[in-house]
Nucleic acid binder design. Structure first.
Length: 804
RNA sequence: GGGCGGUUAGCUCAGCUGGUAGAGCGCCUGCCUUACACGCAGGUGGCCGCAGGUUCGAGUCCUGCACCGCCCACCA
């Protein structure tokens, strides 16, 4: 064992060994019947590991390893998401770069090409999880486009169809003109944009004058079928019920009154374009206005006389028309937020189109109930409330996408117009028997299949042994923005299909920001590849650092925290060297004969309890801190220093117990820093098994009475080191430990006794002041007052020793 | 426009049900003490965002304010 711990070779070796020996597999090392299950949030097949993955991977691995050591039948289920729009986007861009296009190659070839590409370059993340030391059951990797998985998705859809919860409706949706598909509200990203606000006069059809409306999109006026004002707006009371003429197209449209109009904004009169604006769509519907489509699926104009023009070209033509006639009252700069596609950043085009919808009322209700009853708990608590609210307010789910990469919707229409949904694909129409069936070309929303992840990965809808054993699972770890997209949908899907929630706890992780507080993003150049710190400092150090900074709020990335982890690994490595060098031929055995031995056993048990408590609360940061101080302060600086000379002297009790104590320390640290602990473990004498499946330390309060035994020694050490004054200690053992740890004969500097006296005088003054306050003595709890008296006593005693 | 969170040592952050401020890093001073200089010991450093209130006592509870984030939202 070299003095400097080098994680590079060690970590890879253990990662390969654990996996090769089947210790990552479901059920490895199980010693009890209970299961503990986590499904990895399936990353995009095309993606790479980022800090968020590394953090949530570290959290999940700590929980999995901890439960595995406790003997649970653990399963950490891995896999990938096909990520419909995202993957299609990547492949489409490749085609464009090659001078062709999706449309040109056709659907079948496009899908084939996507598969080819994934075979070659997809699925990189699981390799990176391996490098993190994530003890995932890699042999069970699933993909949402696997045949078996497809069958689950199709069955889910058919079940919903049979309940009558799937319907088709022509509504206004968020349309991405680049991908030419509908996307959900949740996939729209709002960004600030500088635009121009135009004020345009719409003359009354009868009589003089007109209404001035404000718009940033003149081209949409081609689709105007009304003008709306607020019913209580006195400025326009005279106009309601009359008609105005839409410029350019010279169409007569009614002026309607609607409360959705904001009188304060613009001119207080709004043009109504039901075909291209969500609010206008509703106003139009409620006032029986016509819906005209003037912009096509590709974002270009389809209005008469404007066919094929871009919107900007149409804008210019319309503005010129208006200016010629003096109908353009003004133009002013205007900054507002516009919806963009989160994948390609195209400006979203609200369009009316026929889509498949899933009713949410009956589907969502059991999930809301489960959350209220806390059968599923989100952590932190604020996210629990958010999850409930999101479900309560969830609009019907648009499940169709006009993409090619994904699960094609299992709905067929026969020649007589009957629709049937079934899986496997039906031979004939259920109503008329016709065999001429045509399948709906749309695919399902990616999240539709993700919703099934905890079930489909275990073989649902088949009654597999795995499903029986591992469903429902226990914990899910993910980011905040995924709650509505994924978490809630897994919950209602699990309840609908299986009658049970898929897990009991959802951990919402921090977003890791760059060190300067900005988001980590590729485009900003602020992203840091987790493989960097892993290569530089080790996976153990990286896990430690990420968990140390983790919190319930957003956190800034910190190399310092990772370096701290590296130091901890090195410290552990060296104290193990100390013990191992002095214990050749010795068996680990708990035989405490001296105070420092009983004390460290008590400290180890106290830390065990504290760590269990923190991990149970999913407070990974607190657990990290406990383990750090246990190792550095208790184990190395006090216990090891105190026992060192006895090890050198060949004290058998000291040697056996040192090995036993080291074993416990390694076990406690293993879930957090698996590699260095397993490596040291392998150097312990007569290793039969691996630490990864070794038993988690049992509670042991045999020496709890010694927990405070070193307090006096430590205080005496502080006084001596500060002042050079030696405090008399009662007890032979205490004196021995003091000498062994402090080694007063080596004290070089004399210490500043006067400074120490001054500090004590200040403390005494403060304590006396408090105790002189009769209201404090009367009202404060007895133990607080008592504590203050005790402190005062101690300060006075120490001052006396310093020869005040 | 709603909702949530934050503001504590130079930096990054802990501080649970109120008891008189902590950690790591940084900086300064000693130490190459036969496990570790990726170490040991000691030290410097804080009107706990601002203003009120409750209390014997307030980073900790209440009210208001000021900044800073994040999420959500149909203001043309």
């Amino acid at each position: 064992m070299e003095p400097l711990y080098d994680p590079a070779g060690v970590e890879r070796r253990w990662q390969e060994t654990w996996e090769a020996e089947g210790l990552y597999g479901a059920g490895a090392g199980r010693r009890r019947d209970q299961s503990f299950v986590i499904c990895i949030p399936p990353p995009n097949v095309t993606g790479e590991l980022h800090m968020g993955h590394a953090l949530n991977g570290a959290m999940q691995d700590v929980l999995i390893r901890w439960h595995r050591m406790q003997g649970f039948d653990t399963l950490w289920q891995p896999g990938y998401d096909h990520a419909g729009i995202s993957t299609q986007n990547v492949v489409e861009k490749q085609l464009v770069a090659e001078g062709t296009s999706r449309q040109e190659v056709g659907r079948e070839a496009f899908v084939e090409r996507t598969w080819d590409w994934l075979e070659r370059t997809g699925r990189t993340i699981m390799g990176q999880y391996r490098r993190l030391g994530a003890s995932v059951d890699y042999s069970r990797e699933r993909f949402t486009m696997d045949d078996e998985y497809v069958r689950s998705v199709m069955t889910f859809f058919v079940r919903l169809w049979e309940r009558g919860w799937i319907y088709r409706a022509n509504r206004i949706v968020n349309w991405c003109p680049y991908h030419e598909t509908a996307i959900s509200d949740l996939e729209v990203e709002h960004v600030e944009k500088d635009d121009t606000l135009y004020r345009i006069v719409y003359p009354f059809a009868e009589g003089d004058g007109g209404l001035t409306i404000a718009t940033v999109r003149p081209s949409t006026l081609l689709g105007d079928t009304g003008v709306a004002v607020h019913p209580d707006d006195p400025r326009y009371a005279h106009a309601v019920g009359r008609e105005v003429i839409v410029p350019v197209v010279e169409r007569r449209v009614p002026v309607v009154a609607d409360v959705r109009v904001e009188p304060e904004f613009g001119t207080g009169a709004v043009k109504v374009t039901p075909g291209h604006d969500p609010m206008d769509f509703e106003i139009g519907r409620d006032h029986a206005l016509q819906t005209l489509t003037v912009i096509g699926p590709d974002g270009r104009m389809v209005a008469d006389g404007f066919e094929g023009l871009t919107q900007q070209e149409a804008d210019e033509r319309i503005l010129a028309w208006l200016e010629e006639r003096g109908r353009l009252e003004s133009r002013e700069p205007y900054r507002h937020s516009v919806g963009t596609c989160e994948r390609c950043h195209s400006r979203i085009e609200p369009l009316v189109s026929p889509q498949w919808w899933c009713r949410m009322d009956e589907l969502g209700a059991p999930a809301i109930e489960a959350l209220r009853e806390r059968r599923v708990r989100f952590h932190p608590e604020s996210q629990h409330r958010f999850a409930i609210e999101s479900l309560e307010q969830a609009p019907d789910w648009c499940v169709s996408r006009q993409l090619w990469w994904g699960h094609q919707i299992p709905v067929w229409t026969c020649e007589n117009g009957h629709q049937v949904s079934a899986w496997p694909p039906p031979e004939a129409c259920a109503q008329c028997g016709s065999g001429a069936l045509e399948r709906d070309p749309d695919v399902l929303d990616t999240w539709f299949s993700s919703a099934l992840w905890p079930l489909a990965t275990l073989g649902w809808p088949d009654e597999t042994p795995e499903l029986d054993r591992y469903y429902p699972g226990d914990v899910n770890v993910t980011a905040r923005e995924i709650i509505r997209l994924w978490e809630n949908r897994m919950i209602f899907s699990g309840l609908f299909l299986r009658g049970e929630v898929p897990f009991t706890d959802v951990i919402i992780t921090s977003t890791i920001l760059a060190a300067d507080g900005r988001r980590m993003s590729k485009s900003l150049g602020t992203g840091i590849d987790p493989m960097e710190p892993i290569e530089a400092h080790g996976a153990d150090a990286t896990r430690y650092g990420l968990l140390k900074i983790s919190s319930t709020q957003d956190v800034r990335y910190s190399v310092g925290a990772i370096e701290e982890g590296r130091k901890l690994a090195n410290k552990l490595w060296n104290v193990a060297r100390l013990i191992l060098q002095q214990t050749e031929g010795v068996e680990p055995e708990t035989r405490p004969s001296a105070l420092e031995e009983r004390w460290i056993l008590a400290r180890l048990d106290a830390a065990r309890a504290a760590v269990e408590e923190a991990w149970s609360r999913f407070d990974f940061s607190a657990a990290t801190s406990v383990l750090y101080h246990l190792t550095f302060d208790d184990f190395c600086d006090w216990y090891a220093e105190a026992v060192k000379s006895r090890l050198y002297d060949g004290d058998d009790d000291a040697r056996s117990t040192a090995l036993a104590a080291l074993e416990r320390l390694l076990a406690l640290l293993h879930p957090l820093m698996p590699h260095v602990t397993e490596e040291i473990w392998s150097h312990l004498p007569d290793r039969r098994g691996r630490l990864i499946v070794a038993a988690w330390p049992e509670p042991d309060d045999a020496h709890a009475d010694t927990l405070t035994a070193l307090d006096r020694v430590q205080e005496a050490a502080r006084v001596f080191r500060r002042s050079g004054v030696r405090v008399e200690l009662e007890g032979e053992e205490e004196q021995r430990i003091f000498s062994a740890v402090v080694r007063p004969e080596r004290q070089s500097a004399a210490g500043d006794a006067e400074a120490e006296r001054e500090r004590l005088r200040t403390e005494i003054g403060r304590a006396e002041g408090m105790l002189a306050n009769e209201r404090f003595v009367a009202n404060a709890p007895a133990e607080v007052v008592e504590g203050e008296r005790a402190k005062l006593e101690r300060y006075r005693r120490e001052l006396e020793l310093l020869g005040a």
